[in-house]
Design a protein around this nucleic acid. Structure first.
Lengths: 94, 94
DNA sequence: TAGACATTTAGAAAACTGTCTAAATATAGA
DNA sequence: TCTATATTTAGACAGTTTTCTAAATGTCTA
């Protein structure tokens, strides 16, 4: 189930940009929001979607909530694409 | 632009299943539709989305239209995921 | 405990998506 | 040319998604 959620999460360009920002290091919700021309609750919503898809994790530090990448799901997705580029036969879940 | 279209195309489970079916070889629109519990026009719509995202190609052979995978876009997507799993710094388009 | 700051939750509106049925288009063969 | 088969296009409808504003929650410091 999380596989489908991850694909849907990544389908949105704002969420992909958030993921790209997090590659350079962990960021607070506010720091992430500052990169977008969008209200904070909207960014918060995107963060929630990414979290539910297990693509990011969060932790509170005082007033701030830090977000970080969780690369384990990326590895599953990477494998899915890899199987198309290489010719093989296998492909679970789909 | 096609990058975003490809991500959106892949976000749907029916379309991912179509792509998986095509890994085993080219299929006609009708053969593809027979794998789904859905009317043919709906499948045709999904094929159109995949085609616009450049993930599949089609060719007519008499009455039939054959669909086949176009793996070049898969390679771009594969690279995008690879860059997350490996730590690197680069990431264009997002 | 009060006030300030950081962030999320709730609820609503607009836009987008997936599916359906009916009709159109394209091809093959009698 | 008529009919059957394969497939797409058009238009409608329900459900989902994205965004907004307003309000709630959580934490720090005076």
């Amino acid at each position: 189930m999380s596989f489908n959620e991850a694909f849907k999460a990544i389908a949105d360009p704002t969420r992909r940009k958030i993921l790209s920002l997090l590659r350079k290091g962990d960021l607070t919700a506010g720091e992430i929001a500052s990169h977008f021309d969008m209200q904070k609750p909207s960014v918060s919503h995107h963060l929630k979607v990414l979290k539910q898809a297990d693509l990011v994790q969060d932790r509170r530090e005082g007033q701030h909530i830090y977000y970080s990448l969780n690369t384990t799901v990326f590895q599953d997705l990477l494998r899915w694409f890899y199987d198309f580029v290489e010719k093989g036969e296998r492909n679970d879940e789909d």
